[in-house]
Design a binder for these strands. Structure first.
Lengths: 343, 343
DNA sequence: TATTGGCACTCGATGTCAACGAGTGCTAAT
DNA sequence: ATTAGCACTCGTTGACATCGAGTGCCAATA
């Protein structure tokens, strides 16, 4: 792949992203620096097609990028874009309004991403196992039913109904909650689980009633705890604006996917490994529902752990430069907010 | 409107609901009991059109019902349908699994409605003012930030961040929470607000610190409390199955409406007044986004207050008999579960 | 040897036209 | 009051021609 071919590939992709129309040799010939005739451009295009970077919708149409073409573009040809200062101002202001409170950032960031890109914005919260205990509370609802409310350090609240065998008194439940907070506040759920298992292993008889309750209820809660990570999507309707999704049936399946959030989460999760912005294009995400969608994702750090993910989701034909720049900027900003601040 | 016209109107509507095609005079002539020629049927149809019950998509097509036609059908011609016993079994089983726990019924019922009708199912929770205090808890997050967690008797949990002027100690917060529970458990938020206002009115100096904290925080929480009612929608993608919604732009606006839930809530709220199943058809809900949608709604009772709503939302061309029967049955069943059970 | 002008060819998009048929409204006969 | 008959309407379908953007290939060119 020589420099000229790269240049032409890039121009085709940029043009196609802009217009949505297959682009022909004449168009490229006109915008190219060194005067090249359409015929020459055609030769190059033909090569690019043979290499799998371009495709023709039909014989007498121009070329459009394939997923492989986008891939090459994103990996090799992408130039870092500057974020317009008004966008940057909006981001800075919105994020500072959260006061570094993670639970609020979870709401705002997908909205921000969606609004700035006209695509779908999303955020995935860190796995629940890494939530840090701030407060836990058991409330007796009636005879055998207890509500457990868990508060994470970042003010994320989750709760769960527990069916228990015996009838606890509310006062005992409170003491159990207190005990757990005293003992485990500041630890992650994962760590707490380990400790509880350890305690369980010790001989049960040595426990006093309080301890016993606390351990039992704590374990019950952790067991009931699903392994789901909260996912917030915003701007799903934006996808309907793109003409490439005019088929109702595909559309419907796509929206069903959006509703089954866990599927999306597990898909997105695979991107979390390395830091920095990553782009997954269409078929690379081996999920048929995401047929011609691409996603731009970046992990963010919370306390020097990189466990959450944020980004955008849109048609493969999207403005990658802008998207990558925005996602990168927001994830860096969020990370710094979350680590500088007490939460 | 004589009996024969009614009969014909009904047959047209039933047929149209079934097939989705405009229905012509021949079709009706064939299925009518007393032999009537197509020509006679045409005369009646012409009258019905003049009266505004039917319309023609174009001159050489059959007739389709207008909103007014559906209205007449629903009000006058609808015969109570029996619910297939397998559906009934499914409903009974699903609802009994909730154990009468309202918070769980909120999840299950819209799914049930959506699944049984292939439309959109929804439930609106009672207004927050009527929530009955079971437990309240204040958690100090940091200096000026407090998290308030509220638990309703039906295990519905809601929470809110409060910015406060002074730095409370966690122990004080706990005592304040306790005090509120002791004093006000079993009262609705509305009632509690009244009492708190009363307490505030008494001379502040007479309060001890504990009381003072409790009153202040309680009031702060109630003030921060938005007046939003929780709405759960399920099966929104079902709407895409219907050919009458093939236009992407309309579709997009519709889905945006679904996302702005408060708009839907206020729309649905208007139906809450009288008991029993109600049907609102298309234009009657003066919201352009719901263009050719109809909704079937029934309030349900929680403790002899009828304040929640449940039902389905679908195209005006829907099986009203089935829908009305299902919504009625489920709302009656839910009401009885919620009043017989301790929650 | 790389580039380019020229040219035949492909194929979707657009438009026109006729045939079809489902359905209507009207009128005159029953 | 009902209905058979008939002319009329109008969306749908398919055939066909035209247009034009774009291609592939080849021979000429620098």
């Amino acid at each position: 792949m020589d420099a000229r071919a790269e240049d032409i590939l890039k121009k085709i992709i940029v043009n196609y992203i802009l217009t949505g129309e297959p682009v022909g040799s004449r168009t490229i010939s006109k915008i190219i620096q060194e005067g090249l005739s359409p015929a020459s451009v055609r030769n190059v295009m033909s090569d690019l097609e043979e290499m799998g970077f371009l495709a023709q919708p039909h014989t007498s149409a121009g070329r459009i990028p394939t997923d492989k073409g986008y891939r090459y573009y994103v990996d090799t040809l992408l130039e870092p874009a500057r974020i317009p200062s008004r966008d940057r101002a909006l981001i800075d202001e919105s994020l500072s309004k959260t006061g570094g409170e993670f639970s609020e950032a979870m709401e705002i960031i997908p909205k921000l991403l969606s609004r700035l890109t006209s695509q779908i914005g999303y955020v995935i919260a860190p796995p629940i196992q890494e939530a840090v205990l701030k407060h836990i509370e058991f409330v007796r609802l009636h005879e055998r039913k207890i509500l457990c409310v868990f508060v994470d350090r970042s003010a994320v609240v989750s709760h769960r109904l527990l069916d228990v065998e015996q009838d606890y008194r509310q006062a005992d439940l409170e003491r159990a909650g207190h005990y757990l907070v005293e003992e485990f506040a500041g630890l992650t759920l994962g760590e707490i689980r380990t400790r509880l298992v350890g305690l369980m292993a010790q001989e049960k008889a040595t426990f006093d009633q309080l301890l016993n309750n606390a351990v039992t209820l704590g374990t019950r809660y952790l067991d009931a705890q699903q392994d789901d990570r909260r996912l917030v999507l915003e701007g799903t309707t934006n996808i309907m604006k793109h003409p490439e999704f005019s088929d109702m049936e595909t559309m419907r399946r796509l929206f069903e996917t959006f509703e089954e959030k866990h599927r999306l989460v597990s898909l997105l999760d695979r991107c979390i490994s390395q830091p920095g912005v990553r782009v997954v294009i269409g078929s690379e995400a081996d999920d048929p529902a995401l047929g011609n969608l691409a996603l731009v994702a970046s992990p963010y750090r919370l306390d020097d752990r990189t466990t959450g993910l944020l980004g955008i989701l849109g048609p493969t034909r999207m403005e990658y430069e802008r998207a990558v720049a925005l996602v990168g900027y927001i994830s860096r900003l969020l990370s710094s907010l979350l680590t500088s601040h007490p939460h």
